[in-house]
Design a protein around this nucleic acid. Sequence first.
DNA 1: GTGAAAGCGCTAACAC
DNA 2: GTGTTAGCGCTTTCAC
Lengths: 346, 346
Amino acid sequence: MIKRSTTIYDVAKAANTSIATVSRVLNNSDYPVKEKLAKKVLSEAKKLNYIPNLIGKQLKNKKSNDIGVIIPNITNQFYPQLIQGIEKVARENGYNILLCNSQRDPINENKYLESLFQKQVEGIIISSVQNIHESLKKFAERGIRIVVFDQNVDFDCNKIIIDFVKGGFLAAKHLIELGHKKIGFISAPLNKYSRVKVFEGFINGLKEFNVNMNKDYIFISNEEKEFYDEIYEYNNGRILARQMLSKSKLPTSVFCINDMTAIGVIQALQENSIEVPKDISVIGFDNIPISKMVSPALTTVDQYTYKMGKMAAEVLLRILKENKKKNESLLIEPSLIVRESTKIIS
Amino acid sequence: MIKRSTTIYDVAKAANTSIATVSRVLNNSDYPVKEKLAKKVLSEAKKLNYIPNLIGKQLKNKKSNDIGVIIPNITNQFYPQLIQGIEKVARENGYNILLCNSQRDPINENKYLESLFQKQVEGIIISSVQNIHESLKKFAERGIRIVVFDQNVDFDCNKIIIDFVKGGFLAAKHLIELGHKKIGFISAPLNKYSRVKVFEGFINGLKEFNVNMNKDYIFISNEEKEFYDEIYEYNNGRILARQMLSKSKLPTSVFCINDMTAIGVIQALQENSIEVPKDISVIGFDNIPISKMVSPALTTVDQYTYKMGKMAAEVLLRILKENKKKNESLLIEPSLIVRESTKIIS
DNA sequence: GTGAAAGCGCTAACAC
DNA sequence: GTGTTAGCGCTTTCAC
C-alpha cells in the first residue's frame, strides 16, 4: 500500500479537535457534538480528501460487513444470475460480496473457505462441489452462518433448494405428454445432490406414466473437470450426444441435466443432421438466459435463479441481523417452460 | 462477528511462549526459532484450530493483497471470461479479487471505487462506464494502481485495449468481401470509447472499399439501462432489429456492436421469417462462448477476452511488485472468426 | 533464541 | 460536549 496517508488523526489535527470527535461526526453518531465543530470536522475531512480505512474499522468493530459467495464456475450463466440476486440484496443492506469460483475443485473450495474465514466474513453462501462437507461444517461450528443453495449438504444449515425431484418429474411428464416413449437422459456424473434428485424425479415420472426406462438411452459422463477458459457442461453435452449418435438405436427425446448441456447436445445433433425437435426433442433444466437465445429455443425447467439468489441473501442477512440460532430451509417450486425444442411425436 | 475467539495470544499461551514467537513460526519467518518450540507452536495452533485474522494482519502490514475489479455487468459472458483470466493470475500470485458490478451506472461505479479504496485494495482493474473519469483519476493520484480494459479513459494509466478500429474494419471488410453493399449497423449508444472506435473502424472499412454508408441502415439506441435480472444488450438487439424491419428497405447484412446484440438481432429477424444468413448476414463482436452455441453460429470478431483478463492482471501485479511509476499500455490485435451467420450475397 | 512493547486506524468507554 | 485512552489481532523492532 502506498502512502495513502490521511487518517482520522490528520482530520482531528486540522479541525483542532480530538479523534473521538472526528469519529463521532463522521459516523453520524447520535452523540452530541456542537454544530459548529461538526461542520468544521466535515469541511476539513473533505479538504483533506479523507477516506476512512475500513480495515481499522473492521478490526475495532469486529464486524466486516462482508459475505462470501462460493460457486463452481462463473461462465455458466446460471451463476451470474444468482449472483445478481445476491448482490442486489446485499448491497441494499450495506454488505459486500466476496465472490469465489471453485472451478469445481474441492481443494479450491476449501482454500476459499479458509480464505473467507480469514477475511472474517459474516456468512457464506455456497454451492458446494463436495459430497462430504467437513470443512464447511467446521466453519459453521465456528460461528460463520452458512447458506447452501443449488446443492444439499450433509449437516444442518440454511438451505435454499429447488425441488429437484419435482423438476425432473416435470420434464419427464412433459415429454410423455407429447407422446414420447423412448426418452433419453444426458448428464454429467450423478455425484451431486442436485443431479441425483433430478434423475430421481425423472425416473419417478417415467414410472408414474408407465414408460420404460431404457439403459441404452442414458448417457452419463464419468468425469467432471473445469478449465479456466472452457465450458465444461457444454462440451460434455456435445461429447455425450455424439456417443448417443454412435449407437444403433436413438431415443425420440432426451432430457438433459441442465441447459448448457442441452445446448451442447442440440448443437452436436444438428451437426449430424438430426433436427431438433423434428427428429429428437430436447429439454433442459435451469432456464438460463441463453436458453431462449439459441434456436430452437430451449424447453426447460425454471429454477428461478435470480430469485434464488435474492432468497439466499435475504435468509443470510435475516439470520445475521436477528442472530437466530435456528436454521431456515426453503424449497423453491420449479416450473416447466415450454419453448421450441420439444414437440409432439410424429 | 461471533466468538471466533482463537487468536495468536491463545496459541502463545497454549505453547507457553510469546506472541512474537508464534507469529514468527506461523509465518515461516526466517527468524531463528528452536525447532522444538516451533513444533510445539504448530501443534498447539492446530489443536486450537487457529486461523489467523487477516484484518489484524492487513492493518499491521498495510497491505491487503486484494485487487478490485469493476465491470458493467456479470451476465454478459464477455465479463465472466475476463474475470476467469484475472482470477487465475491473481490467485497464482496470492491476490484476491473483489468483484463489483456497476450495472452500467456511473453512480454505482463511483460507490464501488470508494468502497474498494476503503477496503485498501492495492489496485483496480476496471471497465468504466463513464466518460469523465474524475473519481478514477482521484484514486489513481492517491496511489491506487489502475488498469483499464475494454474502455479507454481520459488520463494516463495502464491500459489493456484491443484495437477496436481494426476490429470494426475487419467486420466491414468481411461483409464487403462477401459481396455486400447494403451494410447496416446496430448498436447501443455510441457513448463509450469502444463503440465509437468500432464504428470508426467500420466506417473506415466502408470507405476503403468504396461502399456507401446508408443512414437508413444504421440503428443506434438512445438509452442504456441495466436491470438486475435482464440482459440489456440482447433486448436492445431485438428492439433495434424490429425497428429495422419496420423500414421499407432492408440491408443485406448488418454489423452488430457486440455478440449479445447480434444474437438478439438474429432472433428478432428469425421471428419475422427473415433467414440468417440467407436473407441477411449478421456479424457480431466479442466472440463470447455462446456465439458458437447459437444457430446459425455467429461470425464475429475475437477480442481474446480470457487473455485480456490475464494480461490485465499481469500488468497490475507486475506494476505492484516492481513499484513502477510508468504506466503500461497494451494493444490486443482482434481477429475475424467466420462462422455461419454471414454468407456470400446471392 | 526469545519476549516486551509499540503501533497500524479505528471506536467507544470513561473521565472531565 | 469534548478529549484521553484502551484495545481490536497482528508484525516487528529492540532489548535481553
